[in-house]
Amino acid sequence: MGAFAAYTIIGLGLGGIFSLAALGIVLIYRTTGVLNFAHGAMGMFSTFVAWQVFYGWSHPFWPTWLSTLLAVLAGLIFAAIMGLTLEFAVFRWVRTREPVVKAVITIGVLLALQSAASLIWKNNQYHLPIYLAPQQATFQLAGVPIGANYIVIVVMALGLAFGLGAFLRYTSFGRAMRAVSDSPTSASLWGVPVNKVSAVSWMLGSLVAALAGILITPFINFDTTSLTLLIIDALAAALIGGLVSLPLTVLGGFVLGLLETYPTIWIQSLGFPRLVALLVIIAVLIVRNPRGFAVVAK
């Protein structure tokens, strides 16, 4: 039973990671209509910038909290600039194209960012995480110790989900974002400042990606590909949320985290849990589309 509880904790932590990564995807999809395959790569790049500041450029005598703060700030500022740049240079010009074309463009962004990062930081594994909470701090829950950083992740995921949800639902800027996502042409006829709105959307999405990347570093093998590939689990979680619902996405992330953890109790394999997760996702998608004729669903 103890092992089971421990695995549950690990699974929930993993789920928090997936949720965080997935939230940004859903945010960008809902506000710009772009399914961003490059979300993981964007988060990865910003995280490496933070890492560079923390381990590369910080003065050894600075207190850890200062280096951490500076690193996180640097990562976030870089992310904001990257989001804006992508909007100005790329996505502004394809706003009225079909969703699939926009998704393929993000694959181009993914390949470029991924290779640029491995060019700069090589393909090494960096086991040098950035901790937001003290590394050793733990809480006891029903006799099982839980690392503080896990709690940070879970709280962040839930907070972001509800915060972003409320922002989109109740603020006039959030409404404008949803309008642009549905139809940029119509939105401009309603007087919505389309360029401004989509620039902010991309900036926000990129910030969420960076935040997720930085929070995740303590828990995964931190190299250029693993963060980029996190996109696949994140996309799966986002699909459970129908690419729309933020709370369901978080739920999907946790379910996926548990699904990928429990099988490791019985089978020592890196890949097997992925297979389980994939089958579950396909099942969920097919159940969601029960009438069987894909063309009827919008």
Binding site: F37, A103, I232, S269, L270, R274, L278, A294
Partner: peptide, 28 residues
């Protein structure tokens, strides 16, 4: 699954299949 899924959803599922083969079948 492609009988039921289209567009970007199908893209994600096929990407998942690629990952399962990449990390599991070809390496396990």
């Amino acid at each position: 699954p492609a009988l039921r899924l289209r567009g970007i959803t199908l893209a994600i599922v096929t990407l998942g299949i690629a990952l399962v083969f990449d990390r599991y079948v070809f390496q396990d």
